[in-house]
């Protein structure tokens, strides 16, 4: 007569679970991990802080809310709190009993996220983003796998979870991040920018504000055909496309450039184009409204511009509508990573 170790009830021989309390009668030889999870020194210190109590209170509130909402929630579905935890990869596992898996998922996700941020705008960066999303999906898969015994239900939950996370987390994220950190890869060498450089620009910088003198901006060059003489033959340079350079004057300011110094409103300007060897440009003009004076430095136009005032105006006076954003950071290569000044 096997006796239950929990309630001391004498069960019939051959039974695997206690008839009174439901405890397993085969526990003595069962394969169960008997070593409890331990708190690290860091987490103990963190739990003693006031912030932890605030955080914990918020957790209680959300749990209470989830319990209240659960009144009309199908009991066979995962709880709302569990669904909320799916947002952070590894959180459901850390909150449950799969601590190691949770740590692996969270650590892997954060590592890939960090590498993706560091390589943002490059192929490797895209690869790490994909790996991070895959890790997130593995977390979802694990939760869905343990949520039901029915295969169809599990598959539908995986699909539903991936769909919801994609819709409410990654879609807004992938729409929002490029607005404030749009990568722009340099395709042509124009010192100090080199082929392969990845610059980050804020596309929303000039939604509420106007460009200021000294800002480095990404803009669309006015298309212009410049007559040139190359390799002993007459040729035409087609200048167009996106450029990155510094705003040298704003609307209303008068510009005088004698090929060596740049004077703005009669004062020598402290700003220079990105490429300091910017040609022997000679121009004198007043910046019209809604236009900005930007010299496309680094172009092969030496000796051509001084002869043609119209080409100079077309190239260097950029309408506000063609300024796409403010460039603030060189993200790649790592050796030259840093703020662009």
């Amino acid at each position: 007569m096997p006796q239950c170790s929990n309630c001391q009830f004498q069960n019939m021989p051959g039974t695997t679970h206690c008839g009174r309390c439901g405890a397993s009668l085969l526990l003595a030889t069962a394969l169960i991990d008997v070593h409890p999870p331990r708190a690290t020194r860091w987490s103990k210190t963190w739990r003693k802080s006031r912030f932890w109590h605030i955080w914990h209170s918020l957790n209680h509130l959300s749990a209470d809310l989830a319990r209240r909402v659960d009144v009309s929630y199908p009991s066979s579905w995962p709880s709302i709190l569990a669904a909320v935890r799916l947002i952070v990869p590894g959180w459901p596992q850390l909150a449950g009993s799969k601590v190691n898996l949770g740590r692996f998922l969270l650590g892997g996700y954060l590592s890939c996220g960090l590498l993706a941020a560091v390589c943002y705008g490059t192929t490797i960066g895209s690869f790490f983003i994909a790996v991070a999303i895959t890790i997130h999906s593995i977390g979802l898969y694990d939760v869905a796998q343990s949520s039901s015994k029915v295969r169809a239900v599990r598959i539908s939950r995986i699909l539903l979870g991936c769909g919801l996370i994609g819709l409410f987390l990654y879609l807004p994220l992938f729409n929002l991040v490029p607005q404030y950190a749009a990568p722009f890869a340099i395709r042509v060498n124009r010192e100090p920018l080199r082929v392969g450089d990845v610059l980050l620009s804020n596309r929303n910088a000039y939604v509420w504000a106007r460009p200021r003198v000294g800002d480095i901006v990404l803009y669309e060059l006015n298309p212009v055909r410049v007559p040139a003489f190359e390799q002993g033959r007459n040729a035409v340079l087609n200048l167009a496309g996106q450029r990155v350079d510094r705003v040298l004057a704003v609307p209303g300011q008068s510009i005088v450039c004698d090929g060596r110094t740049l004077t703005v409103d009669g004062q020598p300007s402290p700003h220079r184009p990105l490429n300091l060897t910017f040609s022997s440009l000679q121009v004198s003009l007043i910046v019209p409204p809604d236009h900005y004076f930007i010299i496309p430095s680094g172009e092969r136009i030496d000796g051509l511009l001084p002869n043609n005032e119209n080409i100079v105006r077309t190239l260097s006076l950029i309408p506000i509508t063609q300024i796409e954003g403010r460039v603030y950071w060189r993200n790649y290569p790592w050796s030259r990573m840093g703020r662009i000044r």
């Binding site: 309630c7 169960i32 409890p36 999870p37 708190a39 103990k44 739990r47």
Partner: peptide, 24 residues
């Protein structure tokens, strides 16, 4: 675990123990 100030772990562990010994 409670004595060692590890209440979160204690709660988790007691939950696991209660799965083995329901209603103890």
């Amino acid at each position: 675990l409670i004595m060692l100030d590890e209440s979160v772990e204690a709660e988790l562990w007691s939950r696991k123990a209660l799965e083995l010994f329901p209603g103890n």
